[in-house]
Amino acid sequence: MSQIKSYNQHNKLEANFKTYLIGFILSLFFTLSAYFITIKHAFTKDTIIVLISLAAVIQFAIQLLFFLHLGKESRPRYRLLVFSIMLLIVLILVIGSLWIMSNLNHNMTIKQMEEYMVQQGNGGI
């Protein structure tokens, strides 16, 4: 009895045409809206950037759920674990790089850079 129940549960979790179609239509919607918001300049620049970034993140989630079936695996959820670690590494990598580079830019003026290059024997800019 319990076997039948778990089998049915599995079948319900299995991907079918409907989930793919929903994923496809939602992705299409977010892609097109991001595109039209950008070319029409309907809002201020900051609003547009927030909106299209949001559209990208939502589409990322949609495709992970509906196409790659993340979160539909049976327990223990190793995939979710690997995915979370990947997300952590990516965030550290991207945010860290941008932080360090902007800090370096901030702390070095063009004059300083030219002095440094002359000092190194490269003749300046």
């Binding site: 892609t31 991001a34 595109y35 950008t38 070319i39 620049k45 547009i48 950037i49 299209i52 970034s53 559209a55 990208a56 589409q59 990322f60 495709q63 992970l64 196409f67 790659l68």
Partner: peptide
């Protein structure tokens, strides 16, 4: 997976670039 990566190229490279 390649489609997922493309979402970000589309947004970060092209849409941000055009803006």
């Amino acid at each position: 997976f390649l489609d997922i990566v493309w979402i970000f190229i589309f947004t970060i490279v092209y849409l941000y670039g055009v803006l």
